[in-house]
Design a protein around this nucleic acid. Structure first.
Lengths: 150, 150
DNA sequence: CATGCTTCCCCACAATTACCCACAATTACC
DNA sequence: GGTAATTGTGGGTAATTGTGGGGAAGCATG
């Protein structure tokens, strides 16, 4: 319970609304109160955090020393952060600013990442996954050790 | 108890449902809650992990620092992960995406791998076993490698 | 105060999925 | 070896899900 698994392809309607898979809605803890916090993430995608998890993340950021670098990171993050409550059909709404950052137009990929959800523009997503080492290489290099030992 | 042994040939119906051998269902620990997590595995097959085992794996991934490399690994893994609960007849459901990855159409081979189950397309499975070094070679080589490293 | 624009809430509908039942073949058991 | 339970496979139906759009309720603007 409380985990997001699976890849889903959805469309964005003219109002910027994006469906959240029923599976993910069921995985949402009641503490999150049907609220997602959406922010920009590395490699050109967005992340939707359940509200309760975001609060932990926010606390962690605030606890960092206020160096020049941390201040800049904080401003970059908060510049595009938006919270969105699920509507009665189970959708969230993306702001134009968020869509611009991720290059999202009419289609999105939703990627369950266990504790949060990533939102990608489909083409950008395919290019990201296609670049670099392929699955078997990465698997044998990094995963096998751990899976084998436990 | 709690181990999957044996090779089974089953069919995939029009809804993507695949039977799980009664023997495997009995071996499933109650902590798994009749849930399997199915993901892509090396050499063109799939793996079905009992939920409790998968959760250990997931926790380990989540504990890693968010480096560029780890992020990519995480996305590659989660890209093809789906969880499936046994239905009332003891079957799991494969998504079209998973079937495409493994080249599965109408038939599958289920291979008990002690802690998890591998799912293969029959032809691909036979070719994999037939190609490359034979049993004796691999066996002795593997033992020697272990001796050398210890 | 009226007008336009946006935001939210509700309704509608096609497609998909989950749940249930059925049945033949196999296996277990006495 | 015969009978009863279990197992593997298929399909039908009802509920859910994904998607779109309409209309009321705010909020700024002229």
């Amino acid at each position: 319970m409380g985990r997001f698994l699976g890849k889903f392809d959805y469309s964005v309607d003219s109002k910027g609304r994006v469906n959240i898979p029923a599976k993910f809605r069921k995985a949402l803890r009641p503490e999150a109160g049907d609220v997602f916090v959406i922010c920009r993430a590395p490699d050109g995608c967005l992340r939707a955090y359940p509200n309760d998890l975001w609060e932990q993340y926010e606390a962690e950021i605030n606890s960092r020393p206020e160096t020049k670098e941390n201040s800049r990171l904080k401003r970059l993050i908060f510049n595009s952060v938006t919270d969105s409550t699920l509507d009665s059909q189970g959708r969230i709404t993306l702001t134009p600013a968020l869509m611009a950052i991720a290059g999202i137009k009419k289609e999105v990929v939703l990627l369950g990442q266990s504790r949060y959800i990533e939102i990608w523009e489909p083409t950008r997503y395919d290019e990201y996954l296609g670049a670099g080492e392929d699955f078997d290489e990465v698997f044998y290099k990094s995963v096998e050790t751990m899976m084998g030992n436990k």
